[in-house]
Nucleic acid binder design. Structure first.
Lengths: 158, 158
DNA sequence: CTTGAAAAAGCGTTAGC
DNA sequence: GCTAACGCTTTTTCAAG
């Protein structure tokens, strides 16, 4: 596991947990493969311990939840302050995700939600106040996530 | 629920499920609030039925899993072909998420993973072949997600 | 809409292969 | 490293307030 190599059982686990991380039991996964539920449970624990599984999150439709505005901000942070700014950006109410980017000047991407444009303006102001320079902002219309099986598997799972 | 208004119980549920959607039981959530585990379970089902909860996903560290390259592609699609292109982009091996953006020319964002630059090049070629124009590509260094309580709650949960 | 209780299913642990 | 079996927790189902 140290080099990150996964076998078919591991990939099936990751695939099934991507599809439904809450209602998929170890037994469900084991049924499809030729292993026991115990083995699946052990593998999951190992994947968690190895850091390959970072966590499990609910996928929320913010629009349906009453936060109709879902926005993505492209920001620039001085390299030497970036870590600090990322941490503080996460504390701004409305911010739901922060990504550090490797290349280019625009090196921080922030996702945020709001009830109206006042919320978004406030978020923008708070982020600017921290020292982040906002270079672009786009509203997200819709979002699709595809469970991923890895390159070794057949193209069209399901 | 029709207008998307959530009460404190709902928000607590969403918050806890954002933190750990797999190991947080209804009883865990109920313990902190003044309701029974059954109520929490009913609420969760209602949130799922209302589409506010879209699903539950495992958060994978692709780098640790042997796919060290995590990239984000900014693309442009003709408006009238966009829906179709988004659907087909999701089938390109390596693509893990597609977002439709509301504003501007660059109206599709794609996340993809790969083992090496050959993988990324192939993904780029396949997407271009579909008819998507790739205008920018950045490597993601790191990614942080913050559980979100909504604007009505205190600023620093936990 | 919420509760509580019984039956079913799932999990963690341990022991053995 | 995989499996089976134990006891415990959780979910499911359902009748009722």
């Amino acid at each position: 596991m140290k080099d990150g190599n996964l076998d078919d059982v591991d990939r099936e686990i990751l695939y099934r947990l991507q599809r439904d991380a809450r209602h998929t039991s170890s037994g469900d996964i084991a049924a499809g493969m030729d292993v026991s539920a115990s083995t699946v449970r052990n593998r999951i624990q190992r994947l968690e311990a190895a850091g390959i599984i970072r966590g499990y999150h609910v996928d929320i439709d913010y629009e349906a939840a009453g936060y109709p505005l879902y926005t993505k901000l492209v920001c620039t942070a001085p390299v030497d302050e970036r870590e600090e700014l990322v941490r503080r950006a996460l504390d701004v109410p409305g911010v739901v995700a922060v990504r550090e980017v490797m290349t280019g000047d625009e090196n921080v991407y922030i996702n945020a939600v709001g009830r109206d444009h006042d919320d978004l303006n406030r978020i923008g102001r708070e982020l600017s106040g921290l020292g982040l320079r906002i270079t672009d902002e786009v509203l997200i219309r819709d979002e699709y996530v595809r469970p991923y099986r890895g390159f070794h598997d057949r193209e069209r799972p399901d």
